[in-house]
Amino acid sequence: MEEIKVPKAPLPWWAAGLILGLIQVLAVYVKGPLGVSTQFVILDSIVMHKAAPEYAQNHPLLSQEKNRKIGYGFWLDVGIVLGAFTAAVLVKRWKLQTSTVWWKTNRNGSLFGRFFAGFIGGIFILLGARLAHGCTSGGFASGWAQLSLNAVPMTIGLFSFGMLTAWLVYPKTPNIEK
């Protein structure tokens, strides 16, 4: 069996952090801080307006004009997909993958398990992000960039439950390339 190992990231932490921070500053300068998760609600909202127009028009959230409009945030999400795809291809790391090193180390490489957990995890991620008024980008990173009070309970909830969950799901540590 080939040895599995968590590979190093293409960029060192200081370059990655600096670049991400500068992109945040550019975003704040041009339009508004980075955020991702609102668009999931907007796309669902557009579907609901088609599928159940009466429900959508009387819904306190969906009836708001801003929640059915494709705008800056939507194009930002499209950009993320294009940018990540291009970067992965350029550094020759684009690869069809179905699981992760940590999952294979701890969960015997069960593919169905990874997909099922991933789907349930996705539900938690977006429901949580909307309740918190922002995800790891919009709530945490942008929240702290603007010193928003919102970022404090968000950070405590995110990292305490994130660490606890990861500890429960992934007790065994795989090889990590330093």
Binding site: K95, G118, G121, F124
Partner: peptide, 27 residues
């Protein structure tokens, strides 16, 4: 509560909304 739910999903999958989109695009 939202942060905690997001944390549970984050801890199970290793993804958040932005990186989930990026990782799907990377294959």
């Amino acid at each position: 509560i939202g942060g905690a739910l997001l944390g549970v999903g984050f801890g199970i999958t290793g993804y958040c909304p932005g990186t989930g989109l990026a990782c799907a695009a990377a294959g």
